[in-house]
Amino acid sequence: MNLFFREIKAARRSLILWSIGICFMVVSGMAKYEGLSGTGQSLQQMISEMPKSLQAIMGTGTLDLSTAVGFYAILFTYLQLMAAIHAMMLGANIIAKEERDQTAEFLMAKPISRSQIITAKLSAALANVVIFNLVTLILSITMVSKFSKDGESLTDIYLLMAGMFMLQLIFLAAGSSIAAAGNKPKRAASVGTGILLISYILSLAIDLNENIKLLQYITPFKYFEAKRVVAGGVLDPVFVGLSAIIIIILITLTYVSFRKRDLSV
């Protein structure tokens, strides 16, 4: 437990900064809605007349921008990207930092097994990710309900957050497995972020080109994208299952490879 609390404490400041970042995104994003909502239908029309590539990049698609929830869903794409980057970097750094900062010799001389180290670190990272998600949820609900018309359901927001949580877990596990398997601790976070950006760009490319739709299974950003969730009203069980499998594989990989390899000191 001492390692868990140590990690919580170490991540505290970064978590606060990220929370301020989300707060800024949600508040300023929804403030724009207030400005645009006056124009009503014309906004929706304007966007639908834009080239498809531009719509794809903005992530609009089938969303109804005249409602607060619909507008929020666009904002959500960026929140999701932020959450993914946070989770990826957290996962990679929490494992890699002992070797990167050369404290591995200190830690490994203590009566603690490598599996226990991973368990404590992943638990601390999980707690951070949960807090990140809850902060986003609370801010989102508060801001959207401020602008939503009567009778507009906020269920979609809960659903979107559940989707975002799955995405966070995938990238957390991806980050930790990259750090655990690789022997270049300084590069773990940058390799992870690189992979993340590639999969994000891929998700945009799929929106632009119907022919590569099958690739949606390899980029987690497509799994719970806003337009799919809002249109379907549920999280697609196929993607929930797929996410669960990916998370389990990556976490197992984290444990196995960290236990097996020589630590770089």
């Binding site: 404290t103 001389a109 203590k110 603690i112």
Partner: peptide, 21 residues
């Protein structure tokens, strides 16, 4: 038996690096 024997080991590495903050 790594974790078990380390209960009774004290180790001073050649280069000391600790959590800076």
């Amino acid at each position: 038996y790594g974790p078990e024997i380390k209960k009774e080991i004290g180790y001073l590495p050649s280069e000391v690096f600790y959590y800076d903050n």
